[in-house]
Amino acid sequence: MNVFRLTGDLSHLVAIILLLLKIWKTRSCAGISGKSQVMFALVFTTRYLDLFTNFISPYNSVMKVIYLGCSYATVYMIYMKFKASYDGNHDTFRAEFLIIPVGGLAFLVNHEFTPLEILWTFSIYLESVAILPQLFMITKTGEAETITTHYLFALGLYRALYLINWIWRYYFEGFFDLIAIVAGCVQTILYCDFFYLYITKVLHGKKLSLPA
């Protein structure tokens, strides 16, 4: 464990909690893409199947349970509890155009052709594109609530910190996982234009609005 991975995990945790609180406090999931949240729940489900079979550390197990619990709670709140506020008309990204190619790629490019490893690879590839429906929704609505931009910033920052973690681990441990690194680069690159808008607008007290 190194400081970049730890801060990355904490940034990820902050993002997940921020979103949960936003929906719970405002009792509304306006501006939130349910499709992205379903994909994140799928990412955690397929990645943490080894929760009971492969014990790494108390920290690792606790975080996995928190991620799984929060992601399902978020999906539940979007599609059931606060369903009336779900903005389905703007959440129109075709998720199957992501899940099917990612599923196929996981079969073709993986470390080991076993069910658990293919599902893990699927979760890594899916996570790299899971935010697309959310970013697409923001372009369709032309704006995002400030709390939602903080959520997205923390979420984008987490994988950027993981990229530094992988440089650190390669240099100090000789460890590298090309699948995770390539997918992590794609994932972080997808946030670049959001990062630019966040830093130039939201951090200057402006609302994030796109030229519709």
Binding site: D50, N54, M63, F176, D177, I179
Partner: peptide
């Protein structure tokens, strides 16, 4: 390269 005893990252 990838560690045999499974993935240790979240």
């Amino acid at each position: 390269q990838w560690n045999q005893q499974g993935h240790d990252e979240l």
